[in-house]
Design a binder for these strands. Structure first.
Lengths: 147, 147
DNA sequence: TTTGCTGCAAATAGTTTGCAGAGAC
DNA sequence: GTCTCTGCAAACTATTTGCAGCAAA
């Protein structure tokens, strides 16, 4: 499917609908997030855009991420070491598989947590709204290298 | 079971075995982490110990957490907003249920992720070592308040 | 023309580090 | 007595904010 080819349009529309202006910088950020299969860091986004906009500011990246996040169009993955990675391609909760060597982050297709979620809700009396599931391991690439 | 009553002893022993000295400050930190059912923040630990050790330093809390974490005896739960919570009672991965209102964190008993883990490993060719699963929602207490 | 957006630089907050003295063993 | 640990303060890093000029609509 070509879903992620339209992700940028969806996000842009949502921005417009909420009264936000579409600047070239903002557009560039959205485009990178929309096809963010690699789950980029803020710095990655910044570096990539700086090629086209040498005056680009990190603050602008941060501000736009906050904005788009508030519209629910990106998923933020924060880690204990303080690093953040972003997924604007699938902004809803889904499992990630993370290589602890090369830091690659891959999406996992199993979206069958609903059963678990109900179980947890029943056991704890919580109204569950959301979840996050990460698997940590070593990717086949890094296994082969075996430094 | 009274497992968590012995958690502090287990951690202390592990520290000793690895050649670390047991100072009163370190002991106090371990004791709090060992029965950390509330999943305290660094500040919580600091504040609590400061009552008995007025000269206690935040840096000491941080240094000891790093140390004990390196021995695998506490689980660190980092969140996108940069906050960290610690679980020294069950230092192995297990699901948490988190109230987004009062920030309470409750352990969940379902430890049946093994199946999922195998599934993910097969699909991605990763060697899965670890995982993290959080459910976010509203606890019954906060539901009742309904501000 | 009117807002909101950007870039810069300074501010902020959480965590880490250097160092000298204190204390566990 | 040795060597690690602690407390303090300074350093550090990632992120946020104030402000003046710029630009989208």
């Amino acid at each position: 499917m070509a879903d992620h080819k339209k992700r940028d349009e969806i996000i842009i529309r949502k921005l417009r609908d909420n009264g936000h202006k579409i600047t070239p910088q903002r557009m560039a950020i959205v485009k990178i997030l929309a096809k963010s299969l690699g789950h980029p860091r803020v710095e990655d986004i910044y570096d990539q855009i700086k090629k086209d906009f040498p005056t680009m500011s990190l603050a602008t990246v941060y501000r736009n991420i906050v904005l788009i996040k508030s519209l629910g169009e990106i998923l933020e993955l924060g880690f204990p070491d303080g690093s953040n990675r972003y997924d604007g391609n699938k902004p809803y909760p889904h499992p990630h598989v993370i290589c602890i060597k090369c830091k690659k982050i891959v999406d996992s297709d199993l979206d069958s947590l609903e059963g678990l979620q109900k179980e947890v809700a029943a056991a704890t009396n919580f109204k569950i709204l959301n979840h996050r599931l990460d698997f940590f391991g070593i990717c086949s690439n890094c296994m082969a290298k075996k430094v």
